[in-house]
Simulated assay, not measured.
Amino acid sequence: MSAPALETDAVTVEIDGRRIIDAVSFTARAGEVHALIGPNGAGKSTLLGVIAGDQAASAGGVRINGLPLEEVSLRELARQRAVLLQDHTVFFGFTVRQVVEMGRAPWARTSQEDDDDSLVTAALSAADVRHLEHRRIPSLSGGERARAAFARVLAQNTGILLLDEPTAALDLGHQEAVLQVARDRARAGHAVVVVLHDLTLAAAWSDRITLLEQGRVVASGTPDEVLTAERISAVYRHPVEVIRHPSSDALLVVPVRRAG
């Protein structure tokens, strides 16, 4: 098992007197895709913000690559982890390529700067927006903007990738493509943490899953360990079946629907 890339130790977050995260201990490792799942308001995005260093914890600690987060400078943090937020709208008149080039800012005046052009071009291709590179962001559809934002974090070329609902605005084909890129990054030795609502996608693409409910960890483990029909039905307050695809043996989470 690889060393932890990110760890939280009993992290708690309180905002306006409400406990959003309640004593959560979490570990993400290099070489793995780790999905955060849970119903709306479970604390997924808040936890991602804490491990990214963008949201302060009220209690508990965070370590990145073995170091306490508070000991890592902002510039060094930007060289260790890249973050894709839910809200990635850019209204200014930048082109797609200019937005993706922003991902290279942490590496300015370093030897890594020599790779800027090749990494930007590779990121544009990986996110399927190279054909849009000269288009201005306001002219794009929501899905195209989402892919441009994804390309920006890929161009940042960090060992840790934090993705908050990267598939939300995407069609089926691009959902699969984005998560394939995430899987490829993990195979290359990176740590990938991804917030997902689609449980079947989480099952298909994750090595590990952490299920949250009301700010607490309900279960953490492999998809088979976490995604049981009884547990998911209870947490999401809706009956589901967890079945295997007859051809691929993939795990499928299917809501139970009333006929008519």
Rank of each mutant, 00 (worst) to 15 (best):
T158E: 00
A155V: 02
G53F: 06
Q86L: 08
R231H: 01
D224K: 04
G66K: 02
I20R: 00
V218P: 08
I160D: 07
V100F: 11
Q214L: 11
E213D: 15
L85F: 14
E32Q: 14
T95N: 04
S2A: 15
D249K: 00
A182T: 13
L179K: 12
V153F: 04
D184W: 09
G66Y: 06
H34V: 03
D116W: 09
H197I: 05
A146C: 01
A10S: 15
N65A: 15
A250P: 04
V83Y: 04
E113P: 13
V235T: 05
L154P: 00
D207A: 09
D128K: 11
R18S: 13
Y236M: 11
E113D: 05
H238K: 13
G93P: 14
E7L: 09
T167D: 02
L6Y: 09
A23Y: 01
I243E: 10
R145K: 05
L84S: 03
A202R: 05
V178W: 00
R208S: 08
T210C: 08
D9R: 14
M1D: 12
R109G: 02
I21L: 15
H131S: 13
L124C: 02
A219G: 04
E113T: 09
R63P: 00
A3I: 15
D117I: 11
D54H: 13
S206K: 06
G103T: 10
G173H: 08
A5Q: 07
L119Q: 04
I51H: 08
D128F: 12
A168T: 11
Q180G: 14
H134T: 15
H197D: 07
E113I: 07
E14G: 09
R75D: 13
G260D: 08
N157Y: 02
I160E: 01
Q175E: 12
A30G: 15
V218Q: 10
T158L: 06
R258W: 09
A42T: 09
A42V: 07
S111N: 11
L251G: 04
P223K: 03
E133M: 08
A155E: 04
P68D: 11
G189K: 12
P106T: 03
R152E: 06
L251S: 00
V240F: 05
L179M: 15
T95C: 01
A3C: 12
S45D: 04
A52P: 09
L6R: 03
D171E: 04
A219M: 00
R135S: 11
R130P: 02
A203T: 09
A30K: 11
